[in-house]
C-alpha cells in the first residue's frame, strides 16, 4: 500500500470511527461494560470499550488484594491516556470486521499493565511526552491535536526499527512498545481470537494432524509410530497389561 493510499485509508477509517461513536462497539464480550470516554483535549472524541475492573480467576487472597490495589490506582493523566488511545487506533484500526484496538479496550489494558509492571511506567509516560515534543517541533501541535496526516507522518518516521536516525530512536522504541502492547492486548480478547481464527482451549480429542494438512506439507505418519499411539475409540476402556509390559486393552 502506498503512503498516500494509507493516509486516505486512515481518513476513511476516522470517519468510520465517528460512526462507531453512535453504534454499539463491536465485540459482545467487552461491549457489555462499554461506555464512552470523551476527552475535552482531543479535537475528535475518542472512545473505547471500557474493560471490567472486577475479575474472578482463581486468585489467592494476596493476589486479590494486589489486583484491587492496582485497580484503585490511576496512573495515566487523561491526556496521556487519550494519546495512547489515538496511537493504538492507528496501530490496529477499527475499520475491520473484527474491530480494532479501541473495541478491544486497549487504553484500559495499557493502563493496567503499566501499573502491574513498574518498568513500563516511565517508557510509556516518557514516550507520550516525546511524541508530543516531536509533534510540537514539527507541526506546532501536540500529537492528538495534530491533523491525521501529521499523525501518520510521525508514525511513519518511528514505526520501523531499521531507521538509523539517532534523534528518532526514543520514538522508535516507544512505538515498538506500543505496537507490542496493542497487538498483545487485542489478540488476547475475543475479537483477537476471531481475527486469528483460534480454535483451541476447549475439551476435544486429539487424533493427529488432519489428512489434508499432512498432504499439503508432504508429511505422513509412519505405520510403526502409529502402533504406539492411542486408539481414541478405546480411550475409555480401562488399561491392562500383560507381564511383558504390553497394553492388552
Amino acid at each position: 500500500m502506498s503512503e498516500s493510499s494509507e493516509i486516505k485509508h486512515s481518513i476513511e477509517r476516522r470517519d468510520v470511527l465517528k460512526a462507531l461513536m453512535l453504534a454499539p462497539v463491536a465485540g459482545a464480550m467487552l461491549a457489555s461494560t462499554g461506555c464512552a470516554w470523551v476527552s475535552e483535549s482531543n479535537k475528535q472524541p475518542t472512545r473505547w470499550t471500557r474493560l471490567p475492573t472486577q475479575y474472578s480467576y482463581a486468585r489467592t487472597d494476596v493476589e486479590k488484594q494486589r489486583d484491587a490495589e492496582l485497580f484503585a490506582e490511576t496512573f495515566f493523566r487523561e491526556h496521556e491516556l487519550v494519546t495512547i488511545a489515538v496511537l493504538c487506533d492507528i496501530i490496529l484500526p477499527s475499520d475491520h470486521e473484527n474491530g480494532g484496538a479501541l473495541a478491544a479496550g486497549l487504553p484500559d489494558f495499557v493502563e493496567f499493565m503499566a501499573k502491574d509492571r513498574e518498568h513500563y511506567k516511565l517508557p510509556l509516560r516518557g514516550g507520550v511526552a516525546w511524541l508530543d515534543n516531536y509533534s510540537l517541533d514539527n507541526f506546532g501541535a501536540r500529537f492528538v491535536e495534530a491533523d491525521i496526516e501529521q499523525q501518520l507522518a510521525i508514525c511513519d518516521a518511528i514505526a520501523y526499527p531499521d531507521v538509523q536516525d539517532e534523534a528518532l530512536q526514543p520514538g522508535i522504541a516507544f512505538f515498538s512498545l506500543m505496537r507490542n502492547m496493542t497487538l498483545t492486548g487485542y489478540y488476547t480478547t475475543e475479537l483477537g481470537f476471531r481475527d486469528l481464527g483460534y480454535v483451541g482451549n476447549t475439551p476435544n480429542i486429539w487424533d493427529g494432524v488432519p489428512d489434508e494438512v499432512l498432504a499439503r506439507h508432504g508429511k505422513t505418519y509412519d505405520a510403526e509410530w502409529l502402533t504406539k499411539c492411542v486408539d481414541q475409540s478405546r480411550r475409555n476402556i480401562t488399561a491392562e497389561w500383560d507381564d511383558e509390559m504390553n497394553l492388552i486393552t
Binding site: Y55, Y57, A58, T188, T189, E190, F193
Partner: peptide
C-alpha cells in the same frame, strides 16, 4: 480452560 481476557493481565507472569 480460562480465556486470556478473564485475567486483567491476560495471563502475564507476576512475582507470585
Amino acid at each position: 480452560l480460562r480465556n486470556p481476557w478473564e485475567s486483567p493481565r491476560r495471563g502475564a507472569s507476576t512475582r507470585r
